[in-house]
Amino acid sequence: MTARRPALRIAANLLFALGLPAVAVVLWGVWSARSDNRFLAGPLAVLDAFRRTWIGPAFVDDVLPSLLRLALGIAGSIVLGVAAGIAIGSLRRLRETLGPLLEFFRAIPPPVLIPVAMLLLGITGTMKVVVIMSGAIWPILLNTIDGVRATDSVMLETADSYRIPRWERLRFVVLPAAAPRIMTGVRQALSVALILMVISEMFASSSGLGYRIAYFQRNYLIAEMWSGILLLGLIGILLAVLFGLVERRVLRWYQGMKEITRA
């Protein structure tokens, strides 16, 4: 692969990357044009609906608040999950006391907490952020606990022998050692958070992305509904890309190390 001309290689990569999606879109177009299924909208119609529906005031009214709640929920679960995870991971008694409880709470399907949150907090923006956090925190919390527990004993002993104070030990030893596991947890949390954002809005809202999509469906605005699904997909991908960028920065040492040991 090295000897070939770079232009050719880029072209081949591009073809591989875009080939199947392009074929899929064309098939979709042909199918929707021929089919008389009234729930299927063609790619052009969806694109048009997308432009009409989401670009403009709806973006500010429905999309931005949803994204803001999503961001708050994710940030909150990272902060709380990592902080609690470090405490529980380093204190054995606390861990053993809370163990069964954590197992149970993690096992509750997060969306069933939406009715509970509605009951306790009413139908508010805070409620939605709390719902997102109450689902997204578990993967982060449990992975942090595992990560902290798995910190290499020699690394900790080294920190002890050099009398590295508590705060620096946390900042330079425990936290980075647990970082790969924490990032695994965050990745899982992202998809949970997105699901809860949508569901909480479908359930209890008169605005927001999830509400809009459900509204379109109930009113048989098919192309608009598809455009909403497309937008959610795009948000999912955006989250994944952002996460990838952050992960590459945070775990550069880890990936470099893995590459070397594999070689």
């Binding site: 998809s191 997105l194 569901i199 479908m202 999509i213 379109f216 469906q217 509904m225």
Partner: peptide, 25 residues
């Protein structure tokens, strides 16, 4: 190689986004 981008595109789509579609169908 051919499915990589498609998979990376479809995987993060939250499944609940499909609820309205599923209900319609």
């Amino acid at each position: 190689r051919a499915t990589h981008t498609t998979v990376e595109f479809l995987r993060p789509v939250p499944s609940v986004a499909l609820i309205p579609l599923a209900v319609l169908m």
